[in-house]
């Protein structure tokens, strides 16, 4: 709890440096594995954004936007994980991935990775910056 008190300092004297530089942006990807020693190959983006949003959805999200805000929190966790790895960030990301999975027969483990997207000249470049340990899948009712 003492650690929580240190979060008050940037509240009382905020920096307000919103978007001062546009750094490389992390994406969370996951893969399902059949065995603990299997190498992940089929990486999928976690919570990909929709192609388009209707006006009604945009309006509703002004008042009710839990999934998107949770996704922004996971982006913060990913940034924290790259700057200063903690079990908390790994757990927050893993828990949400695990809850979203609908594993097929034979999928026993999953893994996630963080891919950094940045600009290189006029192109975008992707770099895998972190790969999580393999984690055992928990099935509903198990």
């Amino acid at each position: 709890m003492l650690k929580s008190l240190k979060f008050f300092a940037p509240v009382l004297i905020p920096s307000w440096r919103f978007f001062d530089t546009i750094a490389a942006s992390p994406r969370i990807e996951f893969a399902l594995l059949g065995a603990a020693d299997e190498t992940a190959a089929d990486w999928q983006e976690f919570r990909p954004r929709p192609q388009n949003l209707s006006f009604g959805t945009v309006l509703r999200r002004l008042f009710w936007n839990p999934n998107w805000n949770d996704t922004l929190f996971l982006t913060s966790c990913a940034e924290r994980l790259l700057e200063n790895p903690t079990e908390h960030s790994v757990t927050e990301i893993s828990t949400r991935i695990a809850a979203s999975l609908n594993p097929a027969e034979g999928d026993e483990f999953f893994q996630f990775r963080l891919v950094l997207i940045s600009r290189a000249g006029d192109d975008l470049q992707k770099e895998v910056a972190y790969i999580s340990p393999r984690q055992l899948m928990t099935r509903p009712g198990a």
Partner: peptide, 27 residues
């Protein structure tokens, strides 16, 4: 902090926000 950054003055920074940051709500 934006106006002292050449990338903001050229429009590049905001372009980056739209192009690859985690923020745009749709593709």
């Amino acid at each position: 902090v934006k106006i002292v950054n050449p990338d903001w003055r050229s429009g590049r920074a905001l372009s980056d926000v739209f192009q690859f940051s985690a923020y745009p709500v749709s593709e």
